[in-house]
């Protein structure tokens, strides 16, 4: 592959540079009106003109995403542990969890806004509801599919169940928790943005909705650009941290 050995940063720059120039040329040639499809240069000028406003709304959305992630991880891991330790939870919790995922988050968004208000909390909950599911499932699988040979070895060394959980099961479940977290990081913004669409007084989703109503399409794209950049950065940051933290899983892709 061309440039396959180069860093992800260079590949991102090259690929987005290429796509942006195609886009710019297309808007120039086709004469498409800017309220339908603004050109990259118009979006860039929207970014620079409204940056203080964008920074404010971005910070609101970013904090919703990050707090939602933390909360979703906590809920997911705690439920996974309970399902591992207590048969009661294994039997009775899973249907409830599946029910919570069967309802589209769009459908419960208005209810959450009604209950938790227009502020931060309703968006955080929305993110958390989306996120806890992949975390719960992957962590629970990691915990329960720990090789019985590892557990038996620990037993012959005289370890009790609590020590086995702490020293064997938890580290053994880390790689699958990491997979869950990678998924969660990517889908976390969905919850936050949907929440802002349904009812908010700040945030990138709110900003996009208002720009749309005023036909300020370039502003919408600017907000979208920030959201996408943040999500990608968050993913690579998470991936970077996880690779150092769960160092014993080796990739087999060349």
């Amino acid at each position: 592959m061309i440039l396959a050995g180069k860093s992800i940063f260079i590949r991102c720059c090259v690929m987005s540079g290429f796509l942006l120039s195609v886009w710019e040329v297309f808007t120039l040639i086709s004469g498409i009106p800017s309220f339908i499809l603004p050109s990259p240069s118009q979006i860039f000028s929207a970014l620079t003109h409204t940056y203080s406003l964008l920074i404010f709304h971005s910070l609101v959305t970013f904090s919703e995403i990050v707090i939602g992630l933390v909360l979703g991880c906590l809920i997911g891991v705690l439920l996974a542990l309970n399902m591992l330790l207590f048969q009661f939870f294994r039997y009775w919790l899973l249907p409830v969890v599946l029910f919570s995922q069967a309802i589209p988050v769009f459908a419960i968004a208005p209810i959450l806004v009604l209950w938790l208000g227009y502020g931060l909390m309703s968006k955080v909950m929305m993110s958390a509801i989306i996120i806890f599911f992949p975390i719960l499932m992957t962590t629970f699988d990691g915990l329960r599919y720990t090789s019985p040979d590892y557990l038996n070895l620990a037993k012959t060394m005289g370890a009790n169940n609590w020590q086995i959980l702490l020293r064997i099961r938890l580290p053994a479940a880390l790689p699958s928790f990491a997979s869950g977290l990678r998924v969660a990081v990517v889908i976390a913004p969905i919850g936050a943005v949907i929440g802002e669409w349904v009812g908010a007084s700040a945030g990138l989703g709110y900003y996009m909705l208002h720009s749309n109503a005023r036909m300020q399409t370039a502003d919408m794209f600017a907000a979208l650009f920030i959201l996408a950049t943040f999500s990608i950065l968050l993913y690579y940051l998470t991936d970077f941290v996880l690779k150092r933290f769960v160092y014993w899983t080796t990739e087999s892709t060349k």
């Binding site: 040979d149 060394m157 580290p171 769960v246 014993w248």
Partner: peptide, 17 residues
Amino acid sequence: ANNLISYMGQSDLLMPW
């Protein structure tokens, strides 16, 4: 025998972490 034994299995069972 529980407190008197050490056990070595067919596979090495080294913890990768």
